[in-house]
Design a protein around this nucleic acid. Structure first.
Lengths: 188, 188
DNA sequence: CGTGCACTTGATTGAAGTCAAGCGCTGTGG
DNA sequence: CCACAGCGCTTGACTTCAATCAAGTGCACG
Protein backbone atom coordinates (compact mmCIF):
# COMPACT_ATOMS: atom_id res chain seq x y z
CA UNK A 1 0.00 0.00 0.00
CA UNK A 2 1.05 3.65 -0.54
CA UNK A 3 3.99 5.02 1.40
CA UNK A 4 3.50 7.21 4.41
CA UNK A 5 4.64 10.55 5.82
CA UNK A 6 3.56 13.04 3.22
CA UNK A 7 3.48 16.77 4.02
CA UNK A 8 -0.17 16.72 5.00
CA UNK A 9 0.29 14.25 7.82
CA UNK A 10 3.26 16.31 8.99
CA UNK A 11 1.02 19.37 9.21
CA UNK A 12 -1.31 17.41 11.46
CA UNK A 13 1.57 16.11 13.56
CA UNK A 14 2.82 19.64 14.12
CA UNK A 15 -0.43 20.72 15.72
CA UNK A 16 -0.48 21.14 19.48
CA UNK A 17 -2.10 18.32 21.43
CA UNK A 18 -4.94 20.63 22.29
CA UNK A 19 -5.80 21.25 18.67
CA UNK A 20 -5.32 17.63 17.70
CA UNK A 21 -7.89 16.77 20.31
CA UNK A 22 -10.22 19.52 19.09
CA UNK A 23 -10.02 18.08 15.60
CA UNK A 24 -10.84 14.66 16.91
CA UNK A 25 -14.00 15.92 18.53
CA UNK A 26 -15.39 16.87 15.13
CA UNK A 27 -13.99 13.94 13.14
CA UNK A 28 -15.96 10.80 12.42
CA UNK A 29 -14.40 7.56 11.24
CA UNK A 30 -16.19 5.95 8.33
CA UNK A 31 -15.35 3.08 6.05
CA UNK A 32 -16.50 2.63 2.49
CA UNK A 33 -16.38 -0.20 0.01
CA UNK A 34 -14.54 0.17 -3.27
CA UNK A 35 -16.39 2.27 -5.85
CA UNK A 36 -18.53 4.17 -3.38
CA UNK A 37 -19.26 7.86 -3.97
CA UNK A 38 -18.26 10.20 -1.17
CA UNK A 39 -19.65 13.14 -3.12
CA UNK A 40 -21.93 13.55 -6.09
CA UNK A 41 -22.71 16.68 -8.12
CA UNK A 42 -25.44 18.96 -6.96
CA UNK A 43 -24.91 18.48 -3.28
CA UNK A 44 -22.98 21.18 -1.52
CA UNK A 45 -19.85 19.66 -0.05
CA UNK A 46 -20.27 20.15 3.67
CA UNK A 47 -17.30 18.02 4.59
CA UNK A 48 -13.78 17.13 3.75
CA UNK A 49 -12.15 13.74 4.26
CA UNK A 50 -8.79 12.67 5.55
CA UNK A 51 -7.93 9.28 4.15
CA UNK A 52 -6.76 6.84 6.82
CA UNK A 53 -6.55 3.98 4.37
CA UNK A 54 -7.35 3.59 0.70
CA UNK A 55 -7.47 5.62 -2.48
CA UNK A 56 -10.02 8.02 -3.96
CA UNK A 57 -10.38 10.01 -7.13
CA UNK A 58 -12.13 13.26 -7.94
CA UNK A 59 -13.66 13.47 -11.37
CA UNK A 60 -16.22 15.24 -13.50
CA UNK A 61 -18.34 14.03 -16.39
CA UNK A 62 -18.05 15.91 -19.61
CA UNK A 63 -19.92 14.78 -22.73
CA UNK A 64 -20.09 11.13 -21.70
CA UNK A 65 -16.49 11.02 -20.58
CA UNK A 66 -15.09 11.00 -17.10
CA UNK A 67 -12.21 13.40 -16.50
CA UNK A 68 -10.11 12.65 -13.45
CA UNK A 69 -9.02 15.76 -11.57
CA UNK A 70 -7.21 14.26 -8.61
CA UNK A 71 -6.16 11.05 -6.92
CA UNK A 72 -5.81 10.94 -3.15
CA UNK A 73 -3.92 8.46 -1.00
CA UNK A 74 -3.38 7.66 2.63
CA UNK A 75 -3.03 10.70 4.89
CA UNK A 76 -4.15 13.10 2.20
CA UNK A 77 -7.09 15.44 2.37
CA UNK A 78 -9.92 15.07 -0.10
CA UNK A 79 -12.18 17.92 -1.08
CA UNK A 80 -13.81 19.12 -4.30
CA UNK A 81 -11.28 20.97 -6.44
CA UNK A 82 -13.56 23.39 -8.10
CA UNK A 83 -15.62 24.10 -5.05
CA UNK A 84 -18.63 25.48 -6.84
CA UNK A 85 -20.00 26.77 -10.07
CA UNK A 86 -22.04 29.87 -10.61
CA UNK A 87 -25.24 28.08 -9.54
CA UNK A 88 -23.63 27.18 -6.22
CA UNK A 89 -23.51 23.47 -6.98
CA UNK A 90 -20.42 21.34 -7.34
CA UNK A 91 -20.23 19.25 -10.51
CA UNK A 92 -17.65 16.96 -9.03
CA UNK A 93 -17.71 13.31 -8.05
CA UNK A 94 -15.49 11.81 -5.39
CA UNK A 95 -15.26 8.05 -5.53
CA UNK A 96 -13.33 5.39 -3.67
CA UNK A 97 -11.03 3.25 -5.82
CA UNK A 98 -10.36 0.73 -3.08
CA UNK A 99 -11.98 -0.11 0.22
CA UNK A 100 -11.35 3.12 2.06
CA UNK A 101 -11.36 4.42 5.59
CA UNK A 102 -11.75 8.16 6.11
CA UNK A 103 -11.99 10.74 8.84
CA UNK A 104 -15.03 12.75 7.98
CA UNK A 105 -14.68 16.42 8.99
CA UNK A 106 -17.65 18.71 8.94
CA UNK A 107 -16.68 22.05 7.45
CA UNK A 108 -19.04 24.20 9.48
CA UNK A 109 -17.64 22.76 12.65
CA UNK A 110 -14.09 23.17 11.47
CA UNK A 111 -14.74 26.79 10.57
CA UNK A 112 -16.22 27.36 14.01
CA UNK A 113 -13.16 25.80 15.68
CA UNK A 114 -10.66 27.75 13.69
CA UNK A 115 -12.24 31.10 14.43
CA UNK A 116 -9.75 32.99 16.56
CA UNK A 117 -7.46 29.97 16.62
CA UNK A 118 -4.24 31.03 14.91
CA UNK A 119 -2.73 27.59 14.96
CA UNK A 120 -5.63 26.05 13.09
CA UNK A 121 -5.69 28.98 10.69
CA UNK A 122 -2.03 28.42 9.93
CA UNK A 123 -2.76 24.74 9.54
CA UNK A 124 -5.28 25.60 6.86
CA UNK A 125 -2.81 27.93 5.17
CA UNK A 126 -0.18 25.19 5.05
CA UNK A 127 -2.58 22.76 3.50
CA UNK A 128 -3.73 25.26 0.91
CA UNK A 129 -0.16 26.08 0.03
CA UNK A 130 0.63 22.44 -0.41
CA UNK A 131 -2.20 21.96 -2.87
CA UNK A 132 -1.47 25.25 -4.64
CA UNK A 133 2.09 24.22 -5.36
CA UNK A 134 0.89 20.89 -6.63
CA UNK A 135 -1.66 22.51 -8.93
CA UNK A 136 0.80 25.11 -10.17
CA UNK A 137 3.20 22.32 -11.08
CA UNK A 138 0.52 20.39 -12.87
CA UNK A 139 -0.58 23.47 -14.80
CA UNK A 140 2.95 24.09 -15.86
CA UNK A 141 3.26 20.54 -17.11
CA UNK A 142 0.27 21.08 -19.37
CA UNK A 143 1.76 24.29 -20.70
CA UNK A 144 5.24 22.96 -21.32
CA UNK A 145 5.18 19.19 -21.84
CA UNK A 146 3.73 16.87 -24.47
CA UNK A 147 1.85 13.69 -23.65
CA UNK A 148 4.93 11.49 -23.38
CA UNK A 149 6.76 13.95 -21.18
CA UNK A 150 3.76 14.34 -18.89
CA UNK A 151 3.63 10.58 -18.48
CA UNK A 152 7.34 10.38 -17.66
CA UNK A 153 6.95 13.20 -15.20
CA UNK A 154 4.11 11.34 -13.53
CA UNK A 155 6.22 8.20 -13.18
CA UNK A 156 8.93 10.24 -11.56
CA UNK A 157 6.85 12.50 -9.32
CA UNK A 158 3.85 10.38 -8.46
CA UNK A 159 4.87 6.73 -8.76
CA UNK A 160 2.02 5.71 -6.48
CA UNK A 161 -0.43 6.68 -9.17
CA UNK A 162 1.20 4.41 -11.73
CA UNK A 163 1.41 1.59 -9.25
CA UNK A 164 -2.12 1.51 -7.96
CA UNK A 165 -4.44 3.11 -10.47
CA UNK A 166 -5.98 1.83 -13.72
CA UNK A 167 -4.70 3.46 -16.89
CA UNK A 168 -8.15 4.63 -17.94
CA UNK A 169 -8.21 7.02 -15.01
CA UNK A 170 -4.60 8.04 -15.41
CA UNK A 171 -5.15 8.91 -19.06
CA UNK A 172 -7.76 11.59 -18.41
CA UNK A 173 -5.71 12.87 -15.48
CA UNK A 174 -2.86 13.45 -17.93
CA UNK A 175 -5.22 14.97 -20.49
CA UNK A 176 -4.77 12.22 -23.08
CA UNK A 177 -6.78 9.24 -24.30
CA UNK A 178 -6.38 5.69 -23.11
CA UNK A 179 -5.18 4.60 -26.54
CA UNK A 180 -2.45 7.20 -26.73
CA UNK A 181 -1.29 6.43 -23.22
CA UNK A 182 -0.99 2.77 -24.08
CA UNK A 183 1.11 3.59 -27.14
CA UNK A 184 3.36 5.86 -25.10
CA UNK A 185 3.95 3.04 -22.65
CA UNK A 186 4.72 0.70 -25.49
CA UNK A 187 7.43 2.91 -26.89
CA UNK A 188 9.19 3.69 -23.64
CA UNK B 1 -7.54 50.59 -18.26
CA UNK B 2 -8.68 47.40 -16.52
CA UNK B 3 -11.90 47.39 -14.55
CA UNK B 4 -11.88 47.56 -10.80
CA UNK B 5 -13.34 45.75 -7.80
CA UNK B 6 -12.05 42.24 -8.11
CA UNK B 7 -12.24 39.81 -5.18
CA UNK B 8 -8.74 40.61 -3.99
CA UNK B 9 -9.43 44.28 -3.40
CA UNK B 10 -12.61 43.28 -1.60
CA UNK B 11 -10.56 41.12 0.76
CA UNK B 12 -8.45 44.15 1.58
CA UNK B 13 -11.50 46.34 2.02
CA UNK B 14 -12.96 43.88 4.49
CA UNK B 15 -10.01 44.17 6.81
CA UNK B 16 -10.44 46.16 9.97
CA UNK B 17 -8.96 49.67 9.94
CA UNK B 18 -6.35 48.50 12.39
CA UNK B 19 -5.09 45.80 10.09
CA UNK B 20 -5.28 48.00 7.03
CA UNK B 21 -2.99 50.40 8.84
CA UNK B 22 -0.67 47.60 9.88
CA UNK B 23 -0.37 46.55 6.27
CA UNK B 24 0.42 50.08 5.25
CA UNK B 25 3.31 50.23 7.68
CA UNK B 26 5.07 47.42 5.81
CA UNK B 27 4.07 48.43 2.28
CA UNK B 28 6.26 50.52 0.02
CA UNK B 29 5.03 52.23 -3.10
CA UNK B 30 7.24 51.77 -6.13
CA UNK B 31 6.80 52.56 -9.79
CA UNK B 32 8.41 50.76 -12.69
CA UNK B 33 8.73 51.41 -16.39
CA UNK B 34 7.30 49.02 -18.94
CA UNK B 35 9.37 45.85 -19.39
CA UNK B 36 11.08 46.00 -16.02
CA UNK B 37 11.71 42.78 -14.10
CA UNK B 38 10.27 42.64 -10.61
CA UNK B 39 11.76 39.20 -10.11
CA UNK B 40 14.36 37.11 -11.87
CA UNK B 41 15.25 33.45 -11.40
CA UNK B 42 17.69 32.51 -8.74
CA UNK B 43 16.73 35.14 -6.25
CA UNK B 44 14.47 34.03 -3.45
CA UNK B 45 11.24 35.99 -3.62
CA UNK B 46 11.20 37.92 -0.39
CA UNK B 47 8.24 40.08 -1.35
CA UNK B 48 4.89 40.11 -3.00
CA UNK B 49 3.37 42.99 -4.93
CA UNK B 50 -0.06 44.48 -5.01
CA UNK B 51 -0.59 46.24 -8.32
CA UNK B 52 -1.96 49.75 -7.93
CA UNK B 53 -1.75 50.46 -11.61
CA UNK B 54 -0.49 48.52 -14.60
CA UNK B 55 -0.06 44.94 -15.78
CA UNK B 56 2.54 42.26 -15.11
CA UNK B 57 3.20 38.74 -16.29
CA UNK B 58 4.90 35.78 -14.67
CA UNK B 59 6.82 33.54 -17.03
CA UNK B 60 9.54 30.95 -17.26
CA UNK B 61 12.03 30.17 -19.99
CA UNK B 62 12.06 26.67 -21.34
CA UNK B 63 14.34 25.71 -24.23
CA UNK B 64 14.52 29.22 -25.67
CA UNK B 65 10.82 29.84 -25.32
CA UNK B 66 9.02 31.97 -22.81
CA UNK B 67 6.00 30.34 -21.21
CA UNK B 68 3.58 32.74 -19.57
CA UNK B 69 2.14 31.43 -16.32
CA UNK B 70 0.05 34.37 -15.18
CA UNK B 71 -1.06 37.89 -15.99
CA UNK B 72 -1.87 40.30 -13.20
CA UNK B 73 -3.89 43.49 -13.31
CA UNK B 74 -4.83 46.36 -11.08
CA UNK B 75 -5.58 45.36 -7.47
CA UNK B 76 -4.25 41.88 -7.93
CA UNK B 77 -1.47 40.27 -5.97
CA UNK B 78 1.64 39.14 -7.76
CA UNK B 79 3.89 36.39 -6.47
CA UNK B 80 5.84 33.53 -8.01
CA UNK B 81 3.52 30.64 -8.83
CA UNK B 82 5.90 27.83 -8.35
CA UNK B 83 7.54 29.24 -5.29
CA UNK B 84 10.68 27.14 -5.50
CA UNK B 85 12.33 24.18 -7.06
CA UNK B 86 14.27 21.48 -5.31
CA UNK B 87 17.41 23.64 -5.20
CA UNK B 88 15.50 26.36 -3.36
CA UNK B 89 15.60 28.81 -6.23
CA UNK B 90 12.68 30.15 -8.19
CA UNK B 91 12.96 29.83 -11.95
CA UNK B 92 10.32 32.43 -12.55
CA UNK B 93 10.43 35.90 -14.04
CA UNK B 94 7.97 38.64 -13.19
CA UNK B 95 7.93 41.48 -15.68
CA UNK B 96 5.90 44.64 -16.13
CA UNK B 97 3.98 44.87 -19.40
CA UNK B 98 3.09 48.54 -18.95
CA UNK B 99 4.32 51.29 -16.71
CA UNK B 100 3.33 49.89 -13.36
CA UNK B 101 2.85 51.06 -9.82
CA UNK B 102 3.01 48.49 -7.03
CA UNK B 103 2.78 48.17 -3.29
CA UNK B 104 5.79 46.19 -2.31
CA UNK B 105 5.15 43.94 0.71
CA UNK B 106 8.01 42.24 2.47
CA UNK B 107 7.08 38.66 3.28
CA UNK B 108 9.05 38.34 6.50
CA UNK B 109 7.33 41.38 7.86
CA UNK B 110 3.95 40.17 6.76
CA UNK B 111 4.54 36.82 8.42
CA UNK B 112 5.54 38.58 11.60
CA UNK B 113 2.38 40.71 11.55
CA UNK B 114 0.05 37.83 10.90
CA UNK B 115 1.39 35.75 13.78
CA UNK B 116 -1.43 35.49 16.28
CA UNK B 117 -3.57 37.80 14.15
CA UNK B 118 -6.60 35.76 13.09
CA UNK B 119 -7.94 38.43 10.80
CA UNK B 120 -4.75 38.60 8.77
CA UNK B 121 -4.54 34.81 8.73
CA UNK B 122 -8.05 34.62 7.33
CA UNK B 123 -7.11 37.28 4.83
CA UNK B 124 -4.31 35.06 3.60
CA UNK B 125 -6.65 32.08 3.45
CA UNK B 126 -9.13 34.03 1.33
CA UNK B 127 -6.45 35.07 -1.09
CA UNK B 128 -5.09 31.55 -1.38
CA UNK B 129 -8.55 30.21 -1.99
CA UNK B 130 -9.11 32.76 -4.71
CA UNK B 131 -5.99 31.71 -6.56
CA UNK B 132 -6.62 28.01 -5.96
CA UNK B 133 -10.02 28.22 -7.59
CA UNK B 134 -8.53 30.08 -10.50
CA UNK B 135 -5.78 27.49 -10.95
CA UNK B 136 -8.18 24.57 -10.60
CA UNK B 137 -10.34 26.09 -13.33
CA UNK B 138 -7.37 26.60 -15.60
CA UNK B 139 -6.17 23.04 -15.04
CA UNK B 140 -9.58 21.75 -15.90
CA UNK B 141 -9.58 23.73 -19.10
CA UNK B 142 -6.37 22.04 -20.15
CA UNK B 143 -7.81 18.62 -19.37
CA UNK B 144 -11.14 19.14 -21.09
CA UNK B 145 -10.85 21.76 -23.83
CA UNK B 146 -9.00 21.99 -27.12
CA UNK B 147 -7.09 25.07 -28.23
CA UNK B 148 -10.09 26.83 -29.78
CA UNK B 149 -12.29 26.20 -26.77
CA UNK B 150 -9.62 27.44 -24.40
CA UNK B 151 -9.36 30.64 -26.41
CA UNK B 152 -13.13 31.15 -26.37
CA UNK B 153 -13.16 30.50 -22.64
CA UNK B 154 -10.46 33.12 -22.18
CA UNK B 155 -12.45 35.70 -24.12
CA UNK B 156 -15.43 35.00 -21.93
CA UNK B 157 -13.75 34.71 -18.54
CA UNK B 158 -10.77 37.04 -18.84
CA UNK B 159 -11.60 39.66 -21.46
CA UNK B 160 -9.01 41.99 -19.98
CA UNK B 161 -6.28 39.67 -21.16
CA UNK B 162 -7.49 39.78 -24.75
CA UNK B 163 -7.88 43.53 -24.63
CA UNK B 164 -4.53 44.53 -23.23
CA UNK B 165 -2.00 41.81 -23.90
CA UNK B 166 0.00 40.85 -27.02
CA UNK B 167 -0.97 37.54 -28.62
CA UNK B 168 2.53 36.11 -28.28
CA UNK B 169 2.13 36.09 -24.52
CA UNK B 170 -1.45 34.89 -24.62
CA UNK B 171 -0.50 31.94 -26.84
CA UNK B 172 1.90 30.38 -24.36
CA UNK B 173 -0.54 31.12 -21.54
CA UNK B 174 -3.10 29.02 -23.43
CA UNK B 175 -0.51 26.35 -24.16
CA UNK B 176 -0.54 26.87 -27.94
CA UNK B 177 1.74 28.50 -30.50
CA UNK B 178 1.33 32.00 -31.84
CA UNK B 179 0.60 30.67 -35.32
CA UNK B 180 -2.18 28.39 -34.16
CA UNK B 181 -3.72 31.13 -32.07
CA UNK B 182 -3.75 33.44 -35.05
CA UNK B 183 -5.51 30.81 -37.16
CA UNK B 184 -8.07 30.21 -34.45
CA UNK B 185 -8.83 33.91 -34.38
CA UNK B 186 -9.14 33.93 -38.14
CA UNK B 187 -11.77 31.22 -38.15
CA UNK B 188 -13.97 32.55 -35.37
C1' DC C 1 -17.04 -21.23 -18.50
C1' DG C 2 -18.29 -17.02 -19.98
C1' DT C 3 -18.88 -12.03 -19.11
C1' DG C 4 -16.69 -7.88 -18.48
C1' DC C 5 -12.83 -5.04 -17.31
C1' DA C 6 -8.16 -3.34 -18.36
C1' DC C 7 -5.34 -2.81 -21.79
C1' DT C 8 -3.21 -3.09 -26.56
C1' DT C 9 -2.95 -2.47 -31.43
C1' DG C 10 -4.10 -0.98 -36.18
C1' DA C 11 -5.88 2.17 -39.71
C1' DT C 12 -7.24 6.57 -40.43
C1' DT C 13 -8.33 11.41 -39.51
C1' DG C 14 -7.81 15.71 -37.59
C1' DA C 15 -5.59 19.22 -34.66
C1' DA C 16 -1.80 21.79 -33.74
C1' DG C 17 3.29 22.48 -34.42
C1' DT C 18 7.15 24.09 -37.31
C1' DC C 19 9.44 27.08 -40.28
C1' DA C 20 9.54 30.68 -43.31
C1' DA C 21 7.77 34.64 -45.72
C1' DG C 22 5.36 38.83 -45.66
C1' DC C 23 2.38 42.83 -44.10
C1' DG C 24 1.35 47.00 -41.54
C1' DC C 25 2.31 49.87 -37.66
C1' DT C 26 5.04 52.67 -34.62
C1' DG C 27 8.72 54.95 -33.19
C1' DT C 28 13.36 56.57 -33.62
C1' DG C 29 17.54 58.52 -35.54
C1' DG C 30 19.85 60.64 -39.39
C1' DC D 1 10.34 64.50 -41.91
C1' DC D 2 11.37 60.50 -44.10
C1' DA D 3 13.42 55.86 -44.00
C1' DC D 4 13.91 51.98 -42.09
C1' DA D 5 14.13 48.67 -38.18
C1' DG D 6 11.55 45.93 -35.33
C1' DC D 7 7.39 44.33 -33.23
C1' DG D 8 2.98 42.13 -33.50
C1' DC D 9 0.47 39.50 -36.18
C1' DT D 10 -1.04 36.67 -40.29
C1' DT D 11 -0.67 33.17 -43.77
C1' DG D 12 1.06 29.15 -46.42
C1' DA D 13 3.13 24.50 -47.05
C1' DC D 14 4.26 20.79 -44.73
C1' DT D 15 5.01 17.58 -40.74
C1' DT D 16 4.04 15.48 -36.51
C1' DC D 17 1.40 14.31 -32.60
C1' DA D 18 -2.51 12.64 -30.59
C1' DA D 19 -7.63 11.47 -31.24
C1' DT D 20 -10.96 8.36 -33.03
C1' DC D 21 -13.08 4.07 -33.76
C1' DA D 22 -12.99 -0.60 -33.93
C1' DA D 23 -11.14 -5.10 -33.17
C1' DG D 24 -8.87 -8.18 -30.31
C1' DT D 25 -6.20 -10.26 -26.17
C1' DG D 26 -5.64 -11.74 -21.47
C1' DC D 27 -7.20 -12.09 -17.07
C1' DA D 28 -10.21 -12.05 -12.89
C1' DC D 29 -14.10 -13.42 -10.90
C1' DG D 30 -18.69 -14.99 -10.11
Amino acid sequence: MPENNNPISLFVDNLSDKNKQLLETIATQKTYKKNTFLLKPGRPASSIFIISKGITRNFIRKSDKEITLQFSFENEIVFPQNSYQSDGKSDEYIQTLTDTEVEFINLNEFNRLKNGNPELLKFEISINEFYMIQMAQRLRDFQTLNATERYLQLIEKEPKIIKYIPLTYIASYLGITLGSLSRIRGII
